[in-house]
Simulated assay, not measured.
Amino acid sequence: MNLAKFPRRGYVKNPTPIEAAPAFSEALGGKVNIFIKRDDLLPGCAGGNKTRKLDFCIADAIEKGADTIITCGAVQSNHARLTLSWAVKEGMDCHLVLEERVKGSYKPEASGNNFLFQLMGVKSIDVVPGGSDMMGEMEKLAAKLEAEGKKPYIIPGGASNTIGATGYVACAEETLQQLFEMGLKIDHMVVPSGSAGTHAGVVVGMHGCNANIPVSGVNVSRPKDVQEGIVHKLAVETAERVGVKGGIPSEAVECFDSYVGPGYSLPTDSMVEAVKLLASTEGILLDPVYSGKAMAGLVDLVRKGHFPEGSNVLFLHTGGSPALYAYLDTFRD
């Protein structure tokens, strides 16, 4: 794979750390060694995985002459926060379409990412009901802005198209180089699986490099069969874009859906436990929507003996900690 042929802005200057989590591993029984890929430390306002995707997406927008970015997400969207932050950095306008997936959950005065949207000077926020055609809503907004003389560029939710997923193909390559330099053999990798771009990109990168490291996604919203289909479709399309020969076998995509709980963004006891446990043992903050539920899945899989004793398991930390501050009541005893 020659990713240098694709335009990008260079937002990712250095590899994010891979850290051992010995106290956390010991708290889970000490039979599996947990390592964490710290993509929560990526550049961009408050960090997070979307910076890798936006590195490529915003480069494409600029190449196409755009002066305005439109994107969408849930009401506390980490993707919306980071898209806005990079648009600000590039001197571009940014408009957000937010989906109220849980009725009544949007509060303009809320903390977390809602506060940061205002702080960074978002140009507009349109809130639409859960289940809305988000691409259709963004296209309507784009048409309105075009009529006003703007040149908008739409980035899909999570920047989860083949352009954005290329950022996580690059992350897989980066990770493998780090493991080589560290002399560290990883037996399994666990990632949050939501809009699918991160999961699909990692799968493509690992498969394309013949890494032989299984990648499991922990779902944050959809049932297993639906999510695996979405991830696999995007992985196949991304593999074609970056030049991975032979496609991506369906068995390369594995998802676990037992940790979603009552629905997307709705707290679960296992998520709360995972967030508190990692914070109290390693001083690392997870978020309640993505990385917290994904870590809850990893915790349960370790406890159930899913990974052989002595395994080295790498968790991809996708960031999102600002959302914690919109969930204070969930974490206070």
Rank of each mutant, 00 (worst) to 15 (best):
S216P: 01
K37W: 05
E19G: 01
G65K: 02
A143N: 04
G283P: 02
G44C: 10
G131W: 12
G130W: 05
A211R: 01
T238Y: 05
C255Q: 06
S250K: 15
G65Q: 03
L328D: 09
Q118G: 15
L42Q: 08
G30I: 15
G243A: 05
M120W: 14
E228G: 12
F180Q: 14
I213N: 00
E148Q: 15
G283K: 09
T268M: 09
E63H: 12
V226T: 12
P43D: 09
M120Q: 15
S221Y: 08
K123W: 05
V169R: 00
T166R: 14
D269R: 15
C45P: 05
V32R: 01
V215T: 10
V204D: 00
E148V: 07
M271E: 14
P249G: 03
A294P: 01
G73M: 08
L301H: 05
I62R: 12
G305F: 05
A61T: 08
G247T: 07
K5Q: 15
Q227M: 14
K140M: 09
E282S: 09
K233V: 04
V231F: 04
R241T: 10
I284S: 06
N312L: 06
I125N: 11
F117P: 08
L286T: 11
I163F: 07
G229R: 08
E251R: 11
D329K: 15
S193C: 14
G205H: 05
K5S: 12
L234A: 00
E228N: 13
T198C: 07
S193L: 11
R38P: 01
D225K: 10
A172L: 01
H199T: 11
E173A: 03
G319I: 04
E109S: 14
D40N: 07
A4Q: 12
K107H: 09
C57K: 04
H79V: 12
S321L: 06
V242D: 02
V231C: 07
A252P: 01
V202Q: 03
M182I: 12
A61G: 04
I230R: 07
G47L: 03
N212P: 02
I213P: 00
K31T: 15
V122P: 06
T238V: 09
D60F: 11
L96Y: 02
R222D: 13
A211V: 08
G73T: 06
P322M: 05
N212W: 04
E146Y: 00
F115Y: 13
E251V: 11
K151T: 13
